[in-house]
Write a protein that binds this DNA or RNA. Structure first.
Length: 226
DNA sequence: CCAGACGTTGTT
DNA sequence: GTCTGG
DNA sequence: CCAGACGTTGTT
DNA sequence: GTCTGG
């Protein structure tokens, strides 16, 4: 699954990324500054690329959908299974019309049973960004309407399976346009979900466990003693 | 008809 | 709210 | 996802 | 054990 990830880019990097996606910064963000985040956790606000009337926008939404039927806000849907996302009542409408890309440099996984943490990312030299497939929903949190998102997951690629059996779905860059287009067929959108086979996993230190820790050190490969 | 799930992951 | 299970 | 609180009254 | 916070 994907319950913690990394977005190393700062404001300028994300602006550059924005142009890569053909996206402008959401005017609603004002002078908002994006900072590199080596420990992105559920319930935090994350940058996402969405389609908008005028083209595409790099906006900020809260990670974790709180379903409308949920009385408290403790039900956080941070992932949606690609195998069923188009059918589940909770996700179907969002999947059909509100697909997004969630920029990431890589993500963390905790290998059971010891919960050894790993950082999983594109190979060195490859594009430093790995946009994950996601969707947006409208939630109500503390009585306020909030845009929230979830990351779509698939069965893990064979090389990652020893660590965990799920992984975030990605979209080939040539298909970003189609993915973000709310008018394409649901089946066509499903067909764009990819379980990348070229990601690399490296063991990292347990410092990543605590979200209070947030620095590039977290994604350095663990050597010798833990 | 009403009750209870509705989501994911991991664990039992 | 809406669907499924009993 | 994991970490850390989870409780009250009164005192500093 | 379970909930909240990050």
């Amino acid at each position: 699954m994907c319950g913690r990830y990394v977005l190393a880019g700062d404001n300028s990097a994300l602006s550059a990324l924005g142009s890569e996606f053909g996206a402008d910064l959401d005017p609603a963000l004002g002078e908002h500054q994006f900072r590199p985040n080596y420990n992105v956790a559920p319930s935090s606000n994350v940058p996402v690329v969405t389609a908008s009337a005028g083209g595409r926008v790099l906006a900020q939404v809260r990670w974790g959908i709180v379903p409308k039927w949920s009385k408290n806000s403790s039900t956080l849907l941070i992932n949606a299974r690609g195998e069923s996302v188009a059918e589940k009542v909770t996700f179907a409408r969002s999947f059909a019309t509100r697909r997004i890309l969630i920029p990431a440099s890589g993500y963390y996984e905790w290998k059971r049973p010891a919960k050894d943490p790993y950082f999983i990312s594109p190979p060195i030299g490859d594009s430093r960004i790995m946009p994950m497939a996601g969707l947006i929903a409208d939630s109500v949190i503390d009585g306020q309407p909030v845009h929230t998102c979830a990351i779509i997951t698939l069965a893990a690629a064979p090389n990652l399976e020893p660590i965990h059996d799920r992984m975030p779905a990605c979209i080939n860059s040539k298909n970003w346009d189609a993915w973000l287009d709310p008018s394409i067929d649901v089946q066509a959108a499903l067909d764009l979900l990819v379980a990348r086979t070229d990601l690399q996993a490296i063991p990292v230190g347990r410092a990543v466990n605590s979200v209070r820790n947030n620095s590039p050190v977290l994604i350095e490969e663990l050597r010798a003693a833990d």
